[in-house]
Design a protein around this nucleic acid. Structure first.
Length: 571
RNA sequence: UGGGGAGUCGCCAAGCGGUAAGGCAUCGGCCUUUGGAGCCGACAUUCGUAGGUUCGAAUCCUACCUCCCCAGCCA
């Protein structure tokens, strides 16, 4: 399983699609012959940051619905604000969408439409529907009124058309400084919907744009650009998140005034996940202030971070297909995402042996120089994955956690005098415990039963536990990075008065282990490959690996019944 | 407070006038050469609250309560 592959999205007819209200609307529109039965959507990210799991939900919806109904879905970068947008983000967005398994029909930019948008603005000015306003930002806010009081009309609201035309052209020509004027739609300063109180259509920004360079110094606002961009492309179902509900009337207003193709907007609830922050602004802060190593830090909820962590596109897609699409503001539990991760990894990840915290075991009655090969199953969930052989010898490493000198009730693993099975190896019995000067257990002296090769006793006796191991002489040293939630609070934004989300950062979200011992086949592990370390969890080879010295990221642990029992007994 | 959205099990979510799907989590049991996986079982007399209409209401009506969004020249 390489992380570089882009797995294909299953065909739409594979099983019953889970329905949702937007899908129902589309089915009804097709039935009634709206737009000739044509379905077109679009995924319109602003290239001002990396895509995250919340975007994945939108991507699955936008591309998924188009695919299911034989329609098109464009990727459109909503680049109307040069102060925040960069090419780096554009490239990352494209890569992430494809990695998730989707391919856009058209690749467009809102900036492709700047000229058309400009001409339409002139049309609206001529129709008396837009005017150049000289109020500054503070004044515009004052004139807008409040939630309960109507606004006041700008003193420039009734400028003659000719003067508006002249001023707007000069705005475009660069005659005025940033912030000195705006072009506004002339709608209704008393509207209960604040978006209708003469919204700004264009602002002056003398700034280099990542695609248009210095061609423009006036840039359209979201409300003026988005609906028309949809319309130009022929988008039939423009799907966005709930907070744009208030913008829909304005979206429709521009389209109606211009008399262009009537794209329609539908809103769904944005994803919220426990222990996770999904605000690009805040994620940017984590990156810029160095709380994480970058946008693809494996603790980040970004697509690139999850990819590096070891998530699969299938797991993310399955999650998105199952969380549902509604209009309720909920909080999905992280454990639900993790369920789909484990489900996919369990089916596909190859099993290997790795010891994170090694404890030396010497098998006293095993020949000094003998090395046997034992056969191990690569994936019990998939017979086609085959088997491999593992070297077995006198000196091994086992997990420190798999031995207790004074075993508590229900602890079935190794303890003095107790016999356990080494997976695919032999039964061993602990005969002696060797400690260092500080009383720490540093080595176990054991004996093995030669009759139990492969893991079964001919006399039929049973052991309560099977543990994993690695042959000391053949093992490879590795670094393993253990991750846990980036935030210790279920809601990272739930903070004490005067504090911000950074105060909820989990100081133990990253633990780096070195001197881990992995089986020999992992010596040249390929970055991006995902494995299950038996009895421990799923791990993904990090790009920091070097030949002979692999680095693994723990994607997620296996469900741990013993840990649960231990937790309970502590309470 | 004006406007807009939303309230069904701990979480997500079906349901759209005929008597509460499913998944996650949780708890039991079986099975097991991963305390993994798998399998079996338990888990809302009740749908924000209070009234009303109806033979019958989560679904219709009324009022109230709670939460989210909007006062960027961000998207």
């Amino acid at each position: 399983m390489s992380s570089l592959e882009s797995t294909p999205v299953p065909a739409a007819d594979e099983g019953a699609e889970r329905s949702n209200f937007i899908r129902d609307i589309i089915i009804e529109d097709i039935r009634s012959g709206k737009h000739g039965g044509r379905v077109q959507t679009r995924f319109p990210p602003e290239p001002n940051g990396y895509l995250h799991i919340g975007h994945a939900k939108a991507i699955c919806l936008d591309f998924g619905l188009a695919a299911e109904f034989g329609g098109k879905c464009n990727l459109r970068l909503d680049d109307t604000n040069p102060s925040k947008e960069e090419t780096e983000y554009v490239e990352a967005i494209k890569q992430d969408v494809q990695w998730l398994g989707f391919q856009w029909d058209g690749l467009y930019y809102a900036s492709d439409y700047f000229q058309q948008l400009y001409e339409w603005a002139i049309q609206l000015i001529k129709a008396g529907k837009a005017y150049v306003c000289d109020l500054n930002a503070d004044e515009i806010r004052e004139y807008r009124g409040t939630l309960t009081e109507p606004g006041r009309e700008s003193p420039y609201r009734y400028r003659p058309v000719e003067e508006n035309l002249d001023l707007f052209q000069r705005m475009k020509a660069g005659e005025f400084p940033d912030g000195s004027r705006t072009l506004r739609a002339k709608i209704d300063m008393a509207s209960p919907n604040l978006n209708f109180r003469d919204p700004v259509m264009y602002r002056i920004l003398h700034m280099e744009h990542h695609r248009t360079g210095d061609e423009w110094c006036i840039y359209p606002m979201y409300d003026y650009a988005h609906g028309q961009s949809d319309s130009i492309e022929g988008v039939t179902h423009s799907i966005c998140t709930l907070e744009f509900d208030n913008n829909r009337p304005l979206y429709n207003w521009f389209i109606e005034q211009l008399g262009i193709f009537p794209s329609q907007q539908y809103e769904f609830d944005r994803l919220s996940l426990t222990y996770t922050l999904l605000s690009k602004r805040k994620l940017l802060r984590l990156v810029q202030e160095g709380h994480v190593s970058g946008w693809d830090d494996p603790r980040m909820p970004t697509i690139s971070g999850m990819r590096r962590r070891g998530y699969t596109p299938e797991a993310i897609r399955n999650f998105c297909a199952n969380i549902g699409v509604s209009r309720t503001n909920g909080m999905t539990q992280l454990s639900y995402l993790e369920h789909f991760l484990r489900e996919d990894l369990n089916r596909h990840a190859l099993r290997v042996n790795a010891v994170l915290r090694p404890l030396r075991v010497v098998i006293e009655n095993y020949p000094d120089d003998l090395v046997e090969e034992v056969e191990a199953v690569n994936n019990p969930e998939d017979a086609a994955a085959g088997t491999r052989s593992l070297p077995f010898s006198k000196v091994l490493y086992i997990e420190q956690d798999d031995f207790r000198e004074d075993p508590p009730k229900q602890f079935f693993r190794l303890a003095p005098g107790r016999e356990v099975r080494l997976r695919y190896g032999y039964f061993i019995t602990c005969r002696d415990v060797i400690k260092d000067g500080d009383g720490r257990v540093v080595e176990l002296r054991c004996t093995y039963d030669p009759e139990t090769r492969g893991g079964n006793a001919p006399d039929g006796r049973k052991v309560k536990s099977t543990i994993h191991w690695v042959s000391a002489a053949h093992s490879v040293d590795a670094e393993v990075r253990l991750y846990s939630n980036l935030f210790s609070n279920e809601d990272p934004d739930d903070v004490a008065e005067g504090r911000d989300f950074l105060s909820n950062l989990n100081p133990e979200s990253l633990e780096v282990l070195s001197g881990c011992k992995v089986e020999p086949g992992l010596r040249e592990a390929v970055p991006g490959t995902r494995y299950q370390f038996e009895r421990l969890g799923y791990f993904c080879v990090d790009r920091d690996s070097e030949p002979g010295r692999p680095v693994f990221n723990r994607t997620i642990g296996l469900k741990d019944t013993w840990a649960k029992i231990e937790q309970k007994s502590k309470k």
